[in-house]
């Protein structure tokens, strides 16, 4: 056996066990997709998607998820930068708080939002008095989605900022740039990949958000809440059209973001 062949065989055998284990997981994830897509033959997908209720749900989901992602990014990226660059008392607690919505059951998250911003809470009542409904509204959906999805952009952006050598920022300051200018010209471009990955995850999470949204604003309907209502009324086959639409829209947006942002799909070498 030649050295080259032996090396190749060794390299393959090294990856055999992880490949087998990973393969099992892939199969487990793929099977429900295949099974679900197989139902499309039995459901009149295009006709159902053409119904006004479905179209409203698609529009609402796109609008609310985009708004939530923008809010989470505009507020979350600066927070991520502060967390990556500064040490202060209570920082660990703050970091735990940011991650908490990731591990919290979405229904509980919804309950928490209701206890803070519900119609009969001080904040909710005040907002209602000036004509702003924080629950059962477009704003309510955004509140629920932002609460649940914002940690994704904060956590990934923080990792991105943390990976930047602070000396680059010092060099920038010594070359005449303020802290803000340095953030814009050095930190932001260098953490771009991580930030875009975070934005992608946040958007995907917001698009698929159901539990908290249903608690806070079951109306107007988003795609996930529409799917739930369709399921209750018509069973699995009734879910397929909007479910497919949700899948297609999310995948399309993710593909565009990743392509535009050139987010690496594997470790950036």
């Amino acid at each position: 056996m030649s050295t080259h062949t032996r090396t190749t065989w060794t390299a393959r055998s090294t990856l055999l066990v992880p490949a087998l284990l990973g393969g099992l997981l892939l199969v487990y994830v793929a099977v429900p997709f295949v099974a679900f897509l197989a139902r499309t033959g039995t459901a009149d997908v295009l006709a159902r998607l053409g119904e006004p209720q479905a179209q409203v749900a698609v529009r609402n989901s796109l609008l609310t998820a985009t708004t939530s992602t923008i809010v989470a990014t505009v507020l979350g990226v600066p927070l991520a930068y502060v967390l990556a660059r500064r040490s202060f008392p209570g920082k660990r607690l703050l970091e735990g708080l940011i991650i908490l919505p990731l591990v919290l059951p979405p229904v509980v998250a919804g309950a928490m939002i209701l206890t803070a911003f519900g119609r009969f809470t001080p904040i909710g009542a005040t907002a209602y008095a000036v004509g702003i409904e924080l629950t059962g509204s477009f704003i309510g959906i955004v509140l629920a989605q932002t609460f649940v999805a914002a940690p994704f952009v904060v956590v990934t952006a923080r990792a991105g900022f943390g990976a930047i050598d602070e000396r680059l920022e010092r060099a920038s300051r010594s070359l005449g740039y303020t802290a803000l200018g340095t953030f814009r010209h050095v930190a932001l471009p260098l953490a771009r990949g991580a930030i875009l990955a975070g934005i992608t995850l946040t958007f995907a999470r917001a698009m698929g958000e159901f539990g908290a949204t249903y608690m806070v604003a079951s109306n107007p309907r988003t795609m996930p809440t529409r799917i739930w209502v369709d399921f209750i009324n018509g069973g699995i086959d009734a879910v397929v059209p909007v479910g497919l639409a949700l899948l297609a829209v999310t995948l399309a947006v993710l593909a565009v973001v990743q392509r535009v942002g050139r987010v690496p799909t594997v470790i950036d070498r």
Partner: peptide, 20 residues
């Protein structure tokens, strides 16, 4: 004064060229 107002050029021990 903050660094940006000092007119002091610095070459650091480790390379700090902006990689982008």
């Amino acid at each position: 004064d903050p660094p940006e107002r000092r007119d002091v050029g610095v070459v650091f021990q480790e390379p700090t060229l902006f990689p982008h």
